[in-house]
Amino acid sequence: MEPTFSPRRVARAIGVSESSLKRWADDGRLSVHRTVGGHRRIHRAEALRFVREAGLQVRRPDLLGLPNPSVPTDGSGRAREGGDPAATLYDLLTACHPRGVHAFLLDLYMSGMPVAAICDGPIREAMSRIGELWKCERERGIVVEHRATSALLQGVASLRSVVTHAPQEGLEHRVRPVVLGGSPTGDPYLMPSILTAWVLAEAGFADINLGPETPAEAFVSAIDDHKPAIAWIACSVPDARPSTNDLKDVLKALAPHGGSLVIGGRGFSADPPPPLPRMSFCATMSDIHGFTAALRELDAAPGN
């Protein structure tokens, strides 16, 4: 269950007066609910949403059950402060420090950086650098990459557990339209779909991640069951790229409810499939974010 806090505790956490916080709640800028006894309570995710949108800071993360952003990278060193975000994240990942990764990603998110920018910037740069280690020290590089991936997976999962996104009216006028996706058979990578799901969640969608090694038939079955507004296929292995017929089968399953297909990853960029109706290629997470924004604008246009 998501934790809730009193206005006094939230006010102390962000360094403002309790009266200011109550005024913002009365003005409708901050959502609160009341207990059976009539006391005001604020969900943590709602407090974080307000702080981020208002340009404030969480000065006492511990009061909201959050980690301190200044965390050690290992037993002796500390994460770089005020430096390059990718370099700081690299330090935390190579030290296999999931709690530090969580705290640092939360710090970036609360500073106002969009999820897509976090994925395309610090995460991509740090993981690309880690992926090059095996060229110099193959065995050690593989171990470091696997441990870093584990730390990043845990850090992202922890962050998503404390940050939820405000519902938005989306496609087909549903409050939280469903999106689903994964990676095809022969592609074992977890991270691309996890980051894609995170970006789509920030855009206001309810995400279903099918994970790696998902056959085309499973995509079609999941689409039939959940009727998503968007399906995604992330392919990092060129040899695992779905055939054109597989892509057509997925699009056919999406057609009855007007769904769209987004594809991306090295597997597609190396050898792009032929253009197909309602299918878009996105090279970056920012492309995916832009695609969803354009889709919502199209849906909101007169006559739709």
Rank of each mutant, 00 (worst) to 15 (best):
L276R: 13
S236T: 15
T292D: 10
R160L: 15
T94Q: 00
D246A: 15
M110G: 09
V175F: 03
E132Q: 15
E2Y: 00
E172R: 15
P273H: 10
L63A: 08
G181N: 07
R40Q: 08
W24D: 02
E2W: 00
D207K: 02
R160Q: 14
A201F: 00
I194Q: 15
R80V: 13
D249N: 15
G75W: 02
H257E: 11
T35W: 00
N245L: 10
L276M: 15
Q154K: 11
L108K: 03
G65S: 11
R34T: 09
T292P: 08
T4I: 03
D107R: 13
L56W: 13
C282A: 15
E202C: 07
A13R: 00
T164F: 01
E46Y: 02
A11F: 03
G37T: 13
R80Y: 04
G265R: 03
G100F: 04
R174W: 03
T214K: 05
V143L: 14
Q154R: 12
G112D: 09
S183M: 12
R278I: 07
D91F: 02
V32Y: 05
W198C: 12
G265A: 06
L133M: 14
P228K: 00
C136T: 14
E213I: 03
Y109M: 02
A301T: 08
A201L: 06
P67G: 06
T149Y: 01
G55V: 05
P273M: 08
S260L: 11
V10I: 09
G75T: 02
G55L: 06
A270D: 13
K22H: 11
G265M: 04
P275N: 12
E46D: 15
R44N: 08
G258A: 09
E169P: 06
A54I: 02
G28A: 05
G265C: 11
A95T: 05
L153S: 08
A11V: 05
A86R: 01
A234W: 02
I142D: 04
V16H: 00
T185P: 04
S6I: 03
V32P: 01
A116G: 09
A13T: 04
P275W: 08
A203S: 14
T94N: 02
R99N: 10
E297F: 07
Q154S: 14
P67W: 05
A13C: 07
F291D: 07
V179N: 03
V51Y: 02
E297G: 13
G15N: 03
A270F: 06
G211D: 04
K227C: 09
A95E: 06
D26K: 12
S269Y: 02
G82C: 06
A103D: 04
E53I: 01
G259C: 06
D246S: 15
M127D: 09
A270W: 05
A117E: 15
G155I: 00
W134M: 13
I142S: 04
I118T: 08
R241M: 12
S6A: 15
V163M: 11
L92G: 04
S111R: 09
V51C: 03
V237S: 10
L133F: 12
D239Y: 08
G82L: 03
R266V: 09
P184N: 11
V16N: 01
R78K: 08
G100S: 07
